[in-house]
């Protein structure tokens, strides 16, 4: 079975050529392991220091907050692995949520609004992807432009609108199976799906190749543009899906909804151990990262840290994780 984390780590034999066991190879060398250890540490610290942190209800709350970030993160992770970026997800999520809300208020139900938002999200992702690959516009420009284009449209078209979504259309946000929220189950299914795709399809392998060494991938004849395009499409579709869960959870919507959501997602991805340079990272990075972000934001709320501090904390986390990536790079260069 090929590995899912790039960097040439392969777990085909119980012992690799350096004689290390599978445990050290697959668990300790995984990109998301430092974040996972950090997560466990934080859970322990907050459980002791913060009143009300260690309870089933609070953990479910953290999961529910993190799951929206993680669903979009799974797809944005693929974009970042292919050495591109998508900063438009905050506005795309809001567009999809508005469409979901309006359709739910008009027609009710869950499936019709969901398919509509999936279609819209996919279309937006396709447009971002085509411009960023075949259109030769760097993805930061495409998606930064898209971030403002869609936000401007929402402010213009829905600035004064008040959305109250009926409870029956909020299945993805409200209902649960045996106490586990449906959105969490959905995330688990998606994560398994992404893992399978990443380890068993040509596209899943090409993402790492394209992101790790673009000219090498081109020389080998890999479909560089198409590989990245699919990642952008997935990112848009994930926004459509997440919008249903997001709106399902809060039930109401303002035109400013989802502002700085893209920062949460990117923080989750890079904090989870995916290299911002592309080519290195795990499918599970965004999930670990989203839980970390969720735990930190939750502990801040419980400790009565003002909500205005959130951006500051996200900024510090992004800078720390990309700097550690820079240090890792310097260390590797020195070793050679």
């Amino acid at each position: 079975m090929p590995s899912d984390q790039g960097d040439g780590v392969d777990a085909r034999s119980p012992k690799d050529r350096h004689g290390r066991s599978i445990l050290s190879n697959t668990l300790l060398a995984r990109p998301e392991t430092p974040a996972l250890l950090f997560l466990i540490l934080l859970l322990a610290v907050f459980s002791v220091t913060t009143k009300g942190f260690f309870s089933v209800n609070n953990f479910i709350g953290i999961l529910e907050q993190g799951v929206i970030i993680a669903i979009v993160g799974l797809a944005v992770n693929q974009v970042i692995l292919s050495a591109e970026i998508d900063v438009s997800v905050g506005s795309v999520l809001a567009v999809c949520a508005f469409i979901y809300g309006n359709l739910a208020m008009m027609f009710g139900g869950n499936l019709l609004p969901l398919f509509a938002t999936l279609a819209v999200g996919t279309a937006i992702g396709l447009l971002n992807g085509v411009l960023s690959t075949y259109g030769k516009v760097p993805s930061i420009i495409t998606t930064l432009g898209a971030l403002f284009v869609y936000r401007g449209l929402i402010l213009l078209l829905a600035g004064a609108q008040v959305l109250n979504v009926p409870k029956t259309s909020r299945v993805l946000g409200l209902s649960d199976v045996a106490g586990i929220p449906v959105s969490v189950l959905l995330l688990v299914v998606l994560a398994v799906g992404f893992y399978w795709v990443s380890t068993n399809t040509a596209w899943g392998r090409n993402i790492y190749a394209v992101g790790g060494n673009e000219s090498g991938a081109t020389t080998l004849g890999l479909p560089v543009n198409r590989t990245r395009l699919i990642a952008f499409v997935l990112s848009g579709a994930a926004c459509g899906l997440a919008a249903a869960g997001f709106l399902g959870q809060i039930g109401q919507l303002q035109a400013t909804a989802g502002t700085s959501f893209e920062l949460r997602v990117i923080t989750a991805v890079v904090l989870g151990g995916t290299s911002i340079r592309g080519g290195r990272g795990s499918v599970f990075s965004p999930i670990v990262g989203a839980l970390l972000v969720g735990v930190i934001l939750n502990a801040m709320t419980l400790n009565r840290v003002p909500g205005t501090m959130e951006l500051f904390v996200l900024g510090v986390l992004i800078l720390l994780s990309v700097s550690s990536e820079g240090i890792r790079q310097r260390y590797l260069e020195k070793k050679i």
Partner: peptide, 19 residues
């Protein structure tokens, strides 16, 4: 110093400064 692309660095400081 870290030889990072300024896009990532300034995305981080964007959140930091605004925060």
């Amino acid at each position: 110093y870290f030889r990072l692309h300024p896009l990532v660095v300034t995305l981080g400081t964007f959140a930091l400064f605004r925060g």
